Each structure stands twice: as C-alpha cells, then as structure tokens.
Simulated scan of single mutants.
Amino acid sequence: MLQNAQSVSVRTSDALTQGNIYSRAQLREMFDISDATINTGVFRPKGHDSVWLFVTERKTADRTQYEDVLEHDTLYWQGQTSGRTDDLIREHQQRGLELLLFYRHAKYEHPGAAFRYEGPFAYSSDEGRNPVSFVLKREHADLMAATEEEAQHSDAFDPQSIEDGRKRIATDIVRRRGQPAFRHQLIAAYGGRCAITECNVVDVLEAAHIYPYRGSETNVVTNGLLLRTDIHTLFDLGWITINADDYTVTVHQNLRQSEYGQWHGKLLKLPTSASMMPSREALEWHQSETGKQG
C-alpha cells in the first residue's frame, strides 16, 4: 500500500505513470482508499496533495450529460451542477494541490471501466454557472513554454556546471532509451536495427513499449519495438502505428508529405524468432487507443 495512517502529504502522481490505464478498483488498492466518493467525478485522496478528475467523454443515458472533451493538451470540462468543487479546481495551485486527469471516451473503453491517466493539468479559465465550464491545460505544455522562454533569454555560461550537465544528459539518455535489460533484449531480437527505418546506429535506438509500461510484466520483447529516437516519439504520440494484420507501417496522412512519409506501407523489420514477434493484440490496442484520427 502507498498510504497509511502515519503517511505525510505527498503527490499521488509520484506513483502513477502517464498513459497507463487505471480502474478505480486499482487506485483504491494502490492508495488504500475506502472513501466511496472516489466514484464521483472529482475526488481528493486523503493524505495526498492531489485532486483527481474522472472524466468520461460520452456518458451513458442515466448520467448527467455534461459536455466534456479532451483536445490534445486542453480539457474542456464542466464542473458539478451544485458547484461544490468549483473553488477547489480554480484554486488548486494556490492550495498546493496537483490536478490529475483520468480520461476515457466511453465507460467500457477499457477493461474494468478503467481510465487512461493523462497526467497533471492546471486551471486556465472558466465561465458560466450551474455548471461552470472550465478550461484546463496540460501542465507540461506550460512548462515547456516557460522553459523555452527561459532558454531564449539565458546567455550565462558556467564552466563549473559542465560536469553536472554531462551527468544529467547521460541520465536523460538512459531514461529515454528504456530499461537497459529490456532494450538489450530488443537490440538482440531486431539485430541492432530500427524496426521501421532499419537504422543501425545503436546509440539512437530506443526500447519502445507497444502497450504502456506497467511494471516488469510489460518489459517483454513481444510488447516492444526497437525504434530510432524520433520514430519512437511519433509512435508514442500515435502519428505512426503498426497494422496488426500484416505488420505494415501506417504514417498519419498529415505526415505523409514529410520525410516520414517514406515509411508508410513499409513492412516492419521483424525478429527472426517467432517467439519474439510483436504481439498482434498489443499492436491492435496501440492503433485503436493512440492512433490519430483522419
């Protein structure tokens, strides 16, 4: 259990992985929750500096038909008709609370009526009453913008920080490449070549999970692809997917006029061992859950 009577306030995001699927039952077990209000749309887990939003885009007929939709990094979300939690949403940052989004398109989109964890969001604006219509922004988008702004106006150079900088860079590279043992297995399975581009520069090849990482049980070769860094990013974002029927690459039409268009329709470079072939079920899940529409 991650919480007990003696625990101090911590952020629940430290124990969650963005992109993973969590049911309310799993969250109850993870955080030792017995409070029945976890079944509502806005929940504050006891002993944690977090607020959880459970949002279903397409509601069942027996539910209040709030108008909620996630568009890229922006959530358009209506608060409760009673308005009891409106100030909690508006003031979450002032109160030192993170606002975490669990999102699904429909109730049974995932097994166990689970949600996809989208990560931290921040209050942006609101209008109207009963219910209030909120606009919430994904936090990393604001962080990236602030970081870019800071970098643009920073000219300082400190030679003493170079060694620390090298360590941070090395750590970041290892983290992006994936768990070392998992990556080494994929390098062996795919002969040290990117499964899509066949690039053989090992330093830029990463271990990509097809189904998101959920502990060691997902670190298996059949749930992975060896991909070049940029291809890995596009795969995770759903701009590139793999057809489970014939293992061909699908590049979203918005990218087909770019340099990535050359890989559209290409047959995936597959492991020679049948036992290491990527899981068709995992590829189907990835294409349906992350693939861009259009």
Score class of each variant (00 low, 15 high):
Asn4Ser: 14
Ala5Val: 11
Gln6Ile: 11
Val10Met: 05
Thr17Glu: 07
Ser23Ala: 12
Leu27Val: 11
Leu27Gly: 04
Ala36Ile: 00
Ile38Phe: 12
Thr40Asp: 03
Arg44Ser: 13
Lys46Tyr: 09
Gly47Thr: 04
Asp49Glu: 09
Trp52Arg: 02
Leu53Thr: 02
Val55Cys: 10
Val55Leu: 07
Arg58Ile: 06
Lys59Cys: 01
Lys59Phe: 07
Ala61Gln: 11
Thr64Gln: 12
Asp68Gln: 08
Val69Lys: 02
Leu70Thr: 11
Glu71Ile: 10
Asp73Lys: 10
Trp77Gln: 04
Thr81Cys: 11
Ser82Phe: 03
Glu91Asn: 15
His92Cys: 06
Gln94Phe: 05
Arg95Met: 07
Tyr103Asn: 10
Tyr103Gln: 07
Arg104Ala: 14
Ala106Arg: 14
Lys107Met: 09
Glu109Arg: 15
Ala114Thr: 00
Arg116Cys: 07
Phe121Gly: 02
Phe121Ala: 01
Ala122Gly: 08
Ser125Tyr: 13
Asp126Val: 00
Asp126Gln: 09
Glu127His: 11
Gly128Thr: 03
Arg129Lys: 01
Pro131Ser: 10
Arg138Gln: 13
Glu139Cys: 05
His140Gly: 00
Met144Gln: 13
Glu148Ala: 08
Ala151Thr: 00
Ala151Lys: 08
Ala151Ser: 03
Asp155Gln: 05
Phe157Val: 11
Ile162His: 09
Ile162Asp: 06
Lys167Leu: 10
Arg168Ala: 13
Ile169Gln: 14
Ala170Leu: 08
Thr171Ala: 14
Arg177Ile: 00
Gly178Tyr: 07
Ala181Pro: 06
Ala181Gln: 12
Ala181Glu: 15
Arg183Tyr: 13
Leu186Pro: 03
Ala188Phe: 07
Ala189Ile: 02
Tyr190Ala: 04
Arg193Cys: 15
Arg193Ile: 03
Arg193Tyr: 01
Ala195Tyr: 07
Cys199His: 09
Cys199Asp: 12
Asn200Lys: 14
Val204Arg: 04
Tyr213Gly: 08
Ser216Trp: 03
Glu217Tyr: 15
Glu217Ile: 05
Val220Ala: 11
Thr222Ala: 08
Arg228Met: 07
Arg228Val: 03
Ile231His: 06
Ile231Arg: 13
Thr233Ile: 10
Thr233Asp: 15
Phe235Leu: 02
Ile240Asn: 02
Asn243Gly: 08
Asp246Ala: 08
Tyr247Glu: 00
Thr248Ser: 12
His252Gly: 12
Leu255Phe: 15
Leu255Cys: 06
Glu259Trp: 01
Tyr260Asp: 02
Gly261Ala: 12
Trp263Gly: 01
Lys269Ser: 15
Lys269Trp: 15
Pro278Trp: 08
Ser279Arg: 06
Gln287His: 13
Ser288Gln: 15
Thr290Phe: 15
Gly294Asn: 07
